[in-house]
């Protein structure tokens, strides 16, 4: 559906996107992840033919961004970050304007607007000027704008930024619903969001792709190491440490916090065998009051931090 090849974009001398390349299949929900300034928005802007790349190419179906920008724009619905809509226009007028540009037949316009208003929950703000809308409503109007022409591809730049938790859930629901029929590309720096909505994740850092795959794949690639958190009501960490180091799978023990007789520590473990019964056995035999005990699976957050850390 979409093929990005060797995409590079320089702003003056600074390189925003550095030889990025990947493909997006039809019907996929792709999450572009990365810290601020990683090149997510730039990539999306080039894809939507708003910016021209310094070099490289993007093809959407059979069209490429140099020769057929208008054809590509017809296929893509785009919601830029913070939805910069015309502040003076009424929501209804704005959507009519968009419908006109999307070449929707006059007789079908009202029906389409009503449909989208229901879907995005903007019925009650239809006759208010955009400048009076709250951020959440603005974002929803932006979403209605993006979906107006019933495009095959939706490009959403941080669709949930600045929304309250309820609105975030709502917008995610909408995206998931749309994603069943359409190809969706969304950028975010909220990892749980990518995990919750996306089929596939591409992590970008400093303009380069550092990881590409489904969340499960990413977790698997990141290795089988894991960490166990233990919190005991027992004073001296040095006394305790030795007991746990005796377990062969435990490769390290580090003190996290020691306060008022409570000792928090992490045990780094490797291998496939579950060491938790062995640890519990030690605690039970010594009769240490156990306050907390859990195994931390490597979350996307850890992977993300590892991949995008400076240096």
């Amino acid at each position: 559906m979409i093929r990005i090849e060797n995409l590079t974009k320089y702003y003056g001398k600074s390189c925003a996107v550095d030889r990025i390349g990947f493909e997006i299949k039809k019907g996929e929900i792709l999450g572009l992840l990365g810290p601020n300034g990683a090149g997510k928005t730039t990539t999306m802007r080039i894809l939507t033919c708003y910016l021209r790349p310094t070099s490289g190419n993007i093809t959407v179906k059979d069209f490429n961004i140099y020769d057929n920008p208008v054809e590509i724009k017809k296929l893509i619905g785009y919601l830029p970050e913070s939805a910069p809509l015309y502040p003076d226009m009424l929501v209804y007028d704005y959507l009519r304007f968009v419908a006109g540009l999307r070449e929707i037949e006059k007789s079908a316009v009202d029906l389409r607007i009503r449909e989208l208003a229901g879907m995005c929950g903007i019925n009650e703000v239809m006759h208010r000027p955009v400048s009076e809308l709250s951020k959440g409503y603005k974002q929803r109007v932006g979403l209605a704008h993006a979906m107006m022409g019933d495009p095959e591809i939706l490009v959403l730049d941080e669709p949930t930024s600045g929304l309250d938790p309820n609105q975030i859930v709502e917008i995610r629901e909408i995206i998931k619903r749309i994603g069943k029929e359409k190809t969706v590309i969304l950028s975010t720096h909220i990892l749980s969001e990518a995990e919750a909505t996306c089929d596939r994740i591409v992590i970008i850092n400093n303009g380069r792709i550092v990881a590409d795959g489904s969340t499960d794949e990413l977790k698997r690639e990141a290795g089988s190491d894991y960490v166990i958190h233990v919190s005991l009501m027992q004073g001296n960490f040095d006394d305790i440490k030795g007991y746990f180091r005796a377990i062969p799978e435990v490769t390290g023990a580090t003190l996290a916090n020691s306060e008022k007789g409570v000792t928090d520590f992490h045990l780094s473990c490797s291998g496939t065998k579950d060491v938790r019964p062995a640890i519990y056995e030690i605690i039970k035999n010594n009769n240490w009051p156990l306050l907390e005990f859990h195994r931390e699976t490597r979350t996307l957050e850890n992977i993300f931090r590892d991949l995008t850390r400076e240096g």
Binding site: T48, V70, P80, S82, P84, L85, L101
Partner: peptide, 14 residues
């Protein structure tokens, strides 16, 4: 200034 140009230019118009 408002950034609405980005919306306008990514709609199918030349």
């Amino acid at each position: 200034n408002t950034g609405s140009y980005e919306l306008l230019f990514t709609m199918p118009v030349s």
